[in-house]
Every structure is written in C-alpha cells, then in structure tokens.
Design a protein around this nucleic acid. Structure first.
Lengths: 116, 116
DNA sequence: TTCATCCTTAAGCATAAACTTAAGTAACAG
DNA sequence: CTGTTACTTAAGTTTATGCTTAAGGATGAA
C-alpha cells in the first residue's frame, strides 16, 4: 500500500462501471475464469480482459493462471477497505445529526448557534 | 430511482477522485459552503464547482442556495446505498469462504469435488 | 450607489477511458 | 503434429474527465 488515497481512487474507479460491478457480483458467488466472467457481458473478450485489469490493479480482484485458464477471485480485504471508507464518513455524519437532535430536543426554541 | 445501476455508476465515479473524497470527508463533519470546500484544495473555484456538480448529480451531496452562499450537505441514504452494495458482495464472498472452511474441517483428506 | 464577496457560465485543452478489430501465443485434446 | 480453446497484445477511434482562464450575475455591506 504505497498510498492509501491512490488505492481508493483505483477501487472506486473500478466500481464505477456496470460491467465491472457485474464481474464483482459474479465473483462474490465464487471464483471464475475470464470467459465465465465474459459470458453475460455484451462486449468482446479483449474488452473484458481490460476491465479485469482495472479490477486487478485496484486490488479488488486477484487472479492466478493455471494452465491456459486464468482464475479470478474477490479480495475481501480490499472490498472491506472501500466499504469502511464509506462507513466511517457516514457515521461521522450520523453522529452529527444525533447531536443536533439532542440539542434541539434539549432546549427547543434556542436557535442562535455561536460559531462554525 | 430510475435506474439503480446508473445511480451506482455515478456514486462510485464521484468517489473515485481524491478531491471529491476530500469534499465528502469535510461534509461528514457538517455542512459547508462552496468556498469552505474549496479552501483545502489546490485548484480554481470553477474546478471545485465542477467537482461539486459531480457529487450532486450522484446524489451523495445535496445543496441549497441561501442568499449568495450555497450550502452543501451529505446525503446519508445515498452514502448508505453505496456502502450496502459493497457490504452485500463482501458478505456473499465471506459466506462462501466459511462454507469452504466447514467442508475442509469436516472431512480432511477428501479433495475430489464434484464439478461446477 | 458603489464595491467586494460568492458563486456561475462559457470556452478551450490535454489526458485518460472504453471500446473495437486483427493478430498473436500457449495449453491440451485427439 | 494439428486444431481448438482460452486468453493476450497491439493499434486505433471516440467520448468523457479534469482542469484552466476570462467574463458574468447576484447579494450584502457601507
């Protein structure tokens, strides 16, 4: 992990394409070969391989070549890192809303907040 | 929600840029104006506004103009949808690993699986 | 009214993405 | 050894992104 930020760039970018999400979705049900991943997608095989490269560079997917077949799997830890980034920001926001709720119910009528 | 897939495209794409993530990070600590969002970023204001438009179109951020100031807030539900997509795929994968673990510990030595 | 503050809009530009087709290469089956 | 399967590589095209600078509004303060 040279730069965590860069890694998030690559992961979210990888997830921003419906074909790639479909591949991830397929892999969430178990390992698959390149042609298995390609089957449901309406595009050429090279295009699929390019998508796979994006997923692999992001770290979300690992692949391993056995004979002439490339076997692909999901990387749980990478998935978790993307999920956690979202989770933490969302929690920060929710805590803020909670505090606001507390404030409002504690002293209804007071509206002058002091600073930012 | 006309197309859930399209919405995920836009959200993950929005998150795939470090400047935009920085804006989301800032907003997770509370609402902010456009220039507050711009302050820590090394780019022109119009560039920031363009990033903000990407975030807004994705649904992750809501904005509201009061006087000459645009106030921005995070949309918790949109954040949650992106998070959930990741969470569910990751769980699918983990369940699979668990089943594999059960299988291996239940009958060590047997290696001939049936076929996929 | 006059001026500074906060955005907005428009236009242009360089780079990156998402494909395509056309040829390979490498394992394996017969 | 020959053909089929399963990818790989290369090159080219089109569209989208991420900026920039240069000019506008539109509000609010004095």
């Amino acid at each position: 992990m040279l730069k965590d930020e860069r890694s998030l760039d690559l992961m979210f970018h990888a997830l921003a394409d419906p074909s790639r999400r479909m591949m991830v979705d397929r892999l969430s049900r178990g390992p698959a070969s390149v042609s298995e991943l390609a089957k449901p997608l309406a595009m050429s095989l090279p295009a699929v391989v390019q998508h796979l490269a994006v997923l692999e560079q992001s770290g979300l997917v690992k692949t391993q070549k056995v004979g002439r077949v490339r076997s692909c799997t999901l990387d749980n830890e990478a998935m978790s890192r993307a999920e956690q980034w979202l989770h933490q920001r969302r929690l920060g926001w929710e805590r803020r809303l909670d505090r606001l709720g507390d404030f409002l119910s504690a002293d209804p009528g007071v509206t002058k907040t002091k600073k930012t």
